[in-house]
Design a protein around this nucleic acid. Structure first.
Lengths: 142, 142
DNA sequence: TTATGTGCAAAAAGTTTGCAAGCAC
DNA sequence: GTGCTTGCAAACTTTTTGCACATAA
C-alpha cells in the first residue's frame, strides 16, 4: 500500500481533530483537497485502523469517532448533552484484571465510552423535558 | 396512551428476547401479528422507553439493542465475534463512585457495553485474518 | 503492464416523517 | 367527532459496493 496524499490527509485530520466522525474528517480533508470523496475517507480510515494508526470509539449514539492511536483514554459520554470527557484509563483500577480473571474477558476500555450524566447535566436537574429545549442538546443527538 | 396489542407484543418480545435490535423485535412480533410494521416497532420502543419499561444499550456496532428495564447488568461485548456476555454491575466496584467524586460524572453502566475480546476469541489467538473466516464472526458485524 | 487507489453512482441498512385511514371514547 | 394509533410509502442518513478510469512501480 502507498501512503497517498488522501490517506495522509485523513490521518492528519484525525490527529488534529482528536475525535471525529467520518463525516467530520471528510469536511476537514475537503478543506485542503476539495475533491476527495467520502468513500475514500471511509476506506482510508479502515486502512489506517488496520495499520494501527487510528482507532475508533463508539460514543453511544450514531456515528463512531476516530482518533489517533497514541490518543488513549477512556471516554465518558453524557447521554443528555452528548459531551464527551476523557479520563485516564487508570480510573478503571483493576477492573480489567478482574474481568479477565472472572470472565476470561480481555477489556479494551478505549473502544467504547462509558455512558452517564455529566456534571453540567446533573446540575441542570433531572427534568426530562427542559422548558426551553436547548437545541444541540437532544438525547443522544438524534 | 393505550396499551395496544402492538405495544404489548413489542414489550413481550423485548422481554423474551433479552436483548434485541428493533429489527429482531420486529421479526418476533411479526411471528404473532404479521402485519405489524417496522415503523410501529420503532414508535413502540421509543414510547416504552419513555415509560421506563425498556431501555436500550449500544453494543458497539450498528444497531442498539433493547431490553426490559428489570434486566439490569453490564454488557461485555466481544468486538471480534460479537458475543455479548452479561455481568453483575458489582464488578465495577467503586468506579461509579470514583467517577462521580473525581469528575462529577454519574455513570449509567448499563447503557453502554464494555468492549473487548471474549474468552473464546482470546483462545482462538490473536490472528487478524482467520485462515477460514468463520461467517457471522466479522469484526463488529459489519 | 499489473496491481493499487480513486471518484462517482448506486445500493444497502437503519431510522424517521407525512399522511390517510382506523379505532376508542 | 376528536384524538390517539397504525400502516404504508417515501425520505433521510450513514456506510458499503461495483465499476471504470487514473496512477505508480
Amino acid at each position: 500500500m502507498r501512503m497517498t496524499p488522501q490517506r495522509q490527509l485523513v490521518l492528519d485530520a484525525v490527529r488534529e481533530l482528536g475525535h471525529a466522525t467520518p463525516e467530520q474528517v471528510c469536511k476537514r480533508v475537503q478543506g485542503t483537497a476539495a475533491t476527495v470523496n467520502i468513500t475514500t475517507i471511509y476506506r482510508a480510515l479502515d486502512l489506517l485502523e488496520e495499520l494501527g494508526l487510528v482507532r475508533h470509539t463508539h460514543l453511544g449514539h450514531g456515528a463512531p469517532t476516530y482518533s489517533a492511536e497514541e490518543h488513549e483514554h477512556v471516554h465518558l459520554a453524557c447521554h443528555r448533552c452528548g459531551e464527551v470527557d476523557e479520563v485516564d484509563p487508570a480510573v478503571l483500577g483493576d477492573l480489567g484484571r478482574r474481568l479477565l480473571a472472572e470472565r476470561g474477558f480481555e477489556l479494551d476500555a478505549t473502544h467504547l465510552a462509558l455512558s452517564g450524566l455529566c456534571r453540567a447535566c446533573r446540575a441542570a436537574g433531572p427534568e426530562q423535558t427542559p422548558a426551553d429545549p436547548p437545541q444541540q442538546h437532544a438525547e443522544e443527538h438524534r
